[in-house]
């Protein structure tokens, strides 16, 4: 609690050498001119440690909401909704594992049950096509089934369609807020350096990954 005058003035004490913080503060001293500032910001160790860490082996065990089989199914759905192209897809960045964790911690029971029921629905429709599960269908059949669900066509109704749209939102959130989604598929600039109201855009340019802290 004790501190002296100097520490709350501009020349605060030098803290950390953590790499991302160094990047963040690049150019800081130059901008300040004569004022000696140095590296001023602590790393966010707690937050980083608690962030969801993508895993390659979560398919071997039950998750927090989904059992092993449901995770395998969800992974397959992720890979169909956002497949690998010249960048990794949703399954490769463990979006299924992220959704399991995120639904458990930050969503309502109702949301969790919606996704559970949807997974059951998808498998039961696969069974009606003579397969014993969705993942045993051919790639073409899987794509076809999810497309019908996405459009609420054939055996799917509009409520089921809306539920699938919700799952697509979870997949998109998981993917586009992942490091790969934000920085490789889309564009992310942690410290833009200023705002320019007009820059050229052509159709092949990726969109910005974020507009700020809250979106």
């Amino acid at each position: 609690m004790k501190n002296d005058n100097a520490s709350i003035t501009a020349s605060a004490s030098i803290r950390t050498n953590e790499k991302s913080r160094r990047h963040f503060l690049k150019g800081f001293t130059t901008m300040l001119g004569g004022v000696a500032v140095g590296s001023l910001v602590t790393g966010n160790a707690i937050s980083v440690a608690m962030a969801y860490v993508p895993s390659n082996d979560n398919m071997l065990t039950d998750g927090k909401i989904f059992n092993k089989n449901q995770l395998v199914l969800l992974k397959q759905i992720c890979s169909i909704v956002i497949p690998k192209t010249d960048t990794l897809g949703a399954a490769e960045v463990d979006t299924h594992g992220f959704i399991d964790n995120q639904l458990y911690h930050c969503h309502t029971k109702e949301d969790q049950n919606t996704v559970l029921a949807l997974l059951t629905l998808i498998d039961s429709r696969a069974k009606q096509q003579g397969s014993n599960s969705f993942i045993k269908l051919t790639a073409k059949q899987q794509f076809q089934l999810l497309t019908e669900l996405d459009l609420g066509e054939h055996s799917f109704d509009q409520i089921q369609r809306a539920d699938f749209k919700l799952l697509k939102q979870y997949i998109c959130f998981g993917y586009y807020t992942s490091e790969v989604g934000a920085t490789q598929e889309l564009r992310y600039d942690p410290v833009p350096g200023g705002f320019k109201g007009s820059i050229p855009y052509k159709k092949s340019d990726p969109t910005w990954a974020t507009r700020g802290l809250f979106n």
């Binding site: 600039d189 705002f195 320019k196 007009s198 820059i199 050229p200 855009y201 159709k203 910005w208 507009r211």
Partner: peptide
């Protein structure tokens, strides 16, 4: 369509 911005 050909307009964008940079920075937030």
């Amino acid at each position: 369509e050909n307009e964008y911005y940079s920075g937030r």
